[in-house]
Design a protein around this nucleic acid. Structure first.
Lengths: 141, 141
DNA sequence: ATAGTTGCAAAAGTTTTGCATTGTA
DNA sequence: TACAATGCAAAACTTTTGCAACTAT
């Protein structure tokens, strides 16, 4: 399994990590392979760990957490806080917002150019706006 | 301590709980007294528990959690999800949004009539919008 | 070589339940 | 009295560290 790392896309992924200032270790490369195979993935640490297991990747849940946070800090992922019980991570790091289907625990992207927030007051002295997050919570009709 | 329950405001608070379908038990009345003494409080389970301890109220952290969720389900509180690590509850249940100061872990209300979200796409079939949450994340300038 | 970094086991939090106890009708 | 509802101890989660092992230079 380990000798497949240099296979298709392996070097590209390694470069991507290196550019982000992260060493291209085996676990990171394998997790990156799962994460960035699709542009718009929403996943929790738990679900990524499960996927890794199924793919035969040997990695602990703790490392999955660490890796997700490292990727987030490096700007490769965006953390989406919608549920107090679980953290979600989004592979789409562009400007966009989310529908959240509470019952299903499912996130749906809303393009950033579709939605707009107006009337934001001036932030308190000594602070500035980092990001505006919009979560549209859905229920069964 | 228990005999003070009928004191000033005690009966009013009891009525409020009863109307919400919650029995006015000692713990609930005492926590309600802390919560609703001010219109715009933002607190975590932990901070409410600490406040209760200081006020000499004997209540376990588990009961604080249960009570906060019961109040939320009864419509007396609103849960604000801004941080994966901690749940916040807001005694202001009217239409409004929040600034969130990441470093301080502090929430600041934004009146609902100040801020507006436009361009919300039609929700997926079979669902409808429950609520639109806006969180404006702040960083030190 | 080696200095810095990583990955995991173990620990630390946070939050939820099971059930004896309590309060209400 | 009986019955439903409560509050807490204990359990179950999720998430974070401390440190041995490893890696890229």
């Amino acid at each position: 399994m380990a000798r497949k790392l240099r296979g298709k896309g392996g070097e590209k992924a390694a470069e991507r990590l290196r550019e982000a200032g992260l060493r291209p270790t085996r676990q990171r490369l394998e997790l990156a392979g799962l994460l960035f195979c699709d542009e718009d993935r929403h996943l929790s640490a738990e679900s990524l760990h499960a996927e890794a297991q199924e793919a035969g990747i040997k990695v602990s849940l703790a490392t999955v957490y660490n890796t997700l946070h490292q990727f987030t800090n490096a700007g490769l992922l965006r953390q989406v806080v919608v549920d107090a019980a679980r953290s979600y991570f989004d592979t789409n790091i562009g400007d966009h917002q989310h529908f959240y289907c509470e019952g299903e625990g499912r996130l749906i992207d809303i393009p950033g150019d579709a939605i707009a927030v107006s009337g934001v007051p001036t932030p308190p002295r000594g602070t500035e706006i980092d990001r505006v997050d919009v979560v549209i919570r859905l229920r069964r009709a």
